[in-house]
């Protein structure tokens, strides 16, 4: 794996490899000394054109635990405000001599443009691009599901036959896109649940089933996992739905809906949550919720991704 740009071009073998390496990394994170020397002497830059403290801190923790030198570069401006250009910033970093770029950008495809540009010739990890993809989020979600389902016996396993409902703003969600492709590759059955306004026009071409009715979807599919997506409140001003109350009533994981779920159903959310809008506190704070595990697993998965693209190794060589 040279880059990690999209989950769509990751094979099942590579995906399981990454998840297995993340298991090793997770073991490191449970030790007293949470550090591996794997990337000693390598410099990784976190190039963030968009604010995301959560994702940046998670990558930074992963990089430091692998003993990499870390540069945080918060580039001002985005494609919209015409601040610093992607090209100039990247060429500056290339001149400094970095070994990998972790990029978050507001424009879909920016990491791919960077990877194929020739401006810099190092591995690129997509930390979220526009409404396109967020691959490490999908890997941490898959890791979390696998761990809950198989515990210590997770290694080598996919998610075959696991029923996942992804609920909310699919249209604008990079998390949803990365999850759809990765979950399909790992053998899961995905159902998307959303108002028709928040589904892509050509969603019928995706390897998923689609429902507009959350109660119906939960009752019919008896999902193993319900993944709630964050709703951007400004969407209602663009007539995607009338108001928050109606959205919450129809597509939120309300307390009532949550209690109707079987006790083994996992409740996931990529964070940050809008409590009372797409998810109730009853659901978010229950033992079925994986929200905090997701955060912890994010570090392990990002360590695995960095390890794979930077060392080219397929398994962790223990010290």
């Amino acid at each position: 794996m040279k880059h990690l740009l999209s989950t769509r071009d990751v094979t099942r073998e590579e995906a399981i490899q990454l998840l297995d390496i993340a298991e090793d990394m997770s073991a490191v994170n449970d030790r007293e000394v949470k550090k591996l020397p794997a990337l000693r002497g390598k410099t990784v830059v976190n190039l963030f054109f968009e604010d995301s403290t959560r994702t940046r801190i998670s990558f930074e923790a992963a990089e430091k635990r692998l003993s990499a030198d870390v540069i945080n570069f918060a580039a001002k401006g985005s494609s919209v405000s015409k601040g610093e250009s992607l090209k100039d910033t990247t060429q500056t970093l290339a001149a400094m001599g970095v070994d990998a770029v972790v990029i978050r950008h507001g424009a879909s495809g920016a990491p791919q443009v960077l990877a194929q540009s020739g401006w810099i010739d190092v591995p690129v990890i997509n930390a979220g691009d526009g409404t396109h993809e967020h691959p490490t989020q999908a890997f941490l979600d898959a890791f979390t599901m696998r761990k809950r389902l198989h515990g210590a016996g997770s290694r080598g396993k996919g998610l075959d036959g696991v029923k996942v409902n992804i609920v909310g703003d699919i249209l604008h969600s990079r998390v949803a896109r990365s999850n759809v492709w990765l979950l399909q590759t790992l053998g899961a059955e995905v159902q998307l649940v959303a108002p028709p306004t928040l589904l892509p026009h050509a969603v019928n071409t995706w390897p998923v089933s689609v429902s507009f009715d959350l109660d119906d979807a939960l009752a019919q599919s008896k999902p193993d996992v319900v993944m709630m997506l964050r709703i951007q409140q400004e969407r209602m001003h663009d007539a995607f739905f009338p108001n928050e109350r109606e959205y919450s009533n129809m597509w939120g994981l309300t307390q009532e809906r949550f209690y109707s779920l079987p006790a083994k159903t996992m409740v996931m959310h990529p964070g940050p949550m809008n409590r009372g809008l797409e998810i109730s506190s009853a659901a978010a704070d229950s033992p079925q919720s994986t929200v905090l595990e997701q955060v912890a697993n994010g570090v392990s998965v990002r360590m695995a991704a960095l390890y794979m693209v930077l060392t080219g190794e397929r398994e962790v060589t223990h010290d």
Binding site: S79, S85, L86, A107, G109, A110
Partner: peptide, 8 residues
């Protein structure tokens, strides 16, 4: 105007 990310 073309040697940049798609959105820009």
């Amino acid at each position: 105007s073309k040697d940049c990310e798609w959105g820009a």
